[in-house]
Amino acid sequence: MSDVTQSVSSAFWLIPEADSELLGIVALSLRVSLTASIVALLVGAPIGASTSLQALPCRRI
């Protein structure tokens, strides 16, 4: 069995066991993803709104 296949097999066996280390990793990943999404929203929404409201010269094309 190759190393990749063995690693994937081991990973799938950890999921139903709900190992505390695995749950900690999943929780951290979700927190990082949610934080990044919120920061992107807080930065991107005002920029997008101001861009859409500005009169741009190429807008009449």
Rank of each mutant, 00 (worst) to 15 (best):
M1S: 12
M1T: 11
S2F: 05
S2D: 09
D3Y: 04
D3Q: 05
D3N: 07
V4I: 07
T5Y: 09
Q6I: 04
Q6V: 12
Q6R: 12
S7N: 03
S7E: 09
V8D: 03
S9R: 11
S10T: 10
S10E: 14
A11I: 01
A11H: 02
A11F: 15
F12Y: 04
W13Q: 13
W13C: 10
W13K: 15
D19Q: 14
S20W: 11
E21I: 13
L22C: 01
L23V: 02
L23G: 04
L23M: 15
G24W: 08
G24F: 10
I25S: 00
V26R: 00
V26E: 06
A27Y: 03
S29Y: 08
L30A: 13
L30G: 08
V32Q: 08
V32I: 09
S33A: 12
S33M: 05
S33L: 05
L34Q: 07
T35S: 14
S37I: 08
S37F: 07
I38L: 15
V39L: 15
A40E: 06
A40R: 03
L42Y: 04
L42A: 01
G44H: 08
G44Y: 06
A45Q: 09
P46A: 02
G48F: 02
G48W: 01
A49F: 14
S50F: 09
S50C: 03
S52R: 14
S52L: 14
S52N: 06
L53F: 08
Q54K: 14
A55K: 15
A55M: 08
L56K: 13
L56T: 10
L56Q: 13
P57G: 10
C58L: 11
C58N: 09
R59C: 08
R59W: 03
R59T: 10
R59G: 08
R60P: 00
